[in-house]
């Protein structure tokens, strides 16, 4: 009996790996190898076109001490965290509305929410520039309504514009996971707590919010991690005050011809993002256990 069990585990492993090996090796070659290469490169030095392969921490020291990089790291994190907060804060009531108030029309609402995001990300972000610009849609519209006498300039080319565009661009990535976690809540729990005298506000804070926490945490991570490294949005609507770390990585890589520094900046942002994400998850695990 033990023999056949062992045998079947063995064949499952062989059969499983026979299928999985192809995509796994592909990812090793196209993801693990490049990331390792980038990691190595970040300890080297580039002098115009020649690469000096002696180990040095200079790139990381530069990334950590030069004011411009520190500014870009802090700004990227701040913009991304603010955008994540607003996206989740707006998405939650929307997801709640669909899950608890839409009844038969849930699928229709989910469909309605996803349609605008079938425009390419690039064009959507560009449209924000068209909306917020000096001669843009919003200014011309307000002038036409005679609500303002001359175009306002504070709308575009700053960090707020980046936050606004990101809050719009990543909305479905927050609404959908939160909706899924709200759908999983057993409705009889709400009835029971109501019978036992909980007010709707009690119900929200003691049942709905804690039980939907996995969706909220998931949504926050799905938005926070990629937006820290967003290139398109800050480049289009950020101006000089809204540029982020990805724009600097691209400049170092192409125009400044300093690939090792670009690699060090990439690795640093990856480490910072991972660190914040892990702390965030650990913090919330503790928070969840109280219930």
């Amino acid at each position: 009996m033990g023999g056949t069990l062992n045998f079947s585990i063995k064949t499952e492993t062989i059969k499983g790996w026979r299928l999985l090996s192809v995509p796994f090796i592909f990812s090793l070659l196209l993801l693990a190898a490049p990331l390792t290469m980038m990691f190595l490169l970040s300890f080297w030095t580039q002098d115009y076109l020649t690469l000096d392969k002696t180990f040095t921490l200079n790139n990381y020291i530069e990334a950590a001490t030069q004011p411009v990089y520190r500014l870009l790291f802090t700004r990227s994190l701040l913009i991304s965290l603010t955008a994540t907060f607003f996206t989740v804060a707006l998405a939650f009531p929307m997801a709640y509305f669909i899950s608890f108030h839409c009844g038969e029309r849930k699928a229709l609402w989910l469909f309605l929410i996803t349609i605008p995001f079938w425009t390419s990300y690039l064009i959507r972000m560009f449209l924000w520039k068209v909306i917020l610009g000096y001669n843009g849609v919003l200014n011309s519209f307000l002038l036409w309504l005679e609500m303002i006498t001359e175009p306002v300039t504070f709308l575009l080319y700053n960090a707020n514009a980046v936050v606004l565009a990101l809050t719009h661009g990543w909305a479905p990535f927050a609404i959908l996971p939160i909706f899924v976690s709200l759908e999983k809540i057993d409705r009889s729990l709400l009835e029971a707590s109501k019978d036992l005298g909980d007010s709707p506000i009690d119900q929200f804070f003691r049942i709905i919010l804690p039980l939907s926490a996995p969706g909220v945490i998931g949504a926050a991570l799905i938005i926070f991690i990629p937006t820290v490294g967003d290139y398109i949005t800050p480049k289009l609507v950020g101006g000089t005050d809204g540029l982020m770390i990805a724009n600097m990585i691209q400049v170092q890589f192409s125009k400044a011809n300093n690939a090792p520094l670009a690699a060090a900046l990439s690795m640093s942002s990856l480490m910072i993002v991972s660190f914040i994400s892990i702390v965030f998850v650990l913090f919330n695990k503790k928070y969840l256990r109280r219930y």
Partner: peptide, 20 residues
């Protein structure tokens, strides 16, 4: 590991591939 590109910032995937 295979699912990682789903969440990794695209600039990091792009730059590292370009380096190689």
């Amino acid at each position: 590991f295979i699912l990682a590109p789903l969440i990794l910032p695209e600039i990091i995937v792009g730059v590292s591939l370009l380096i190689v």
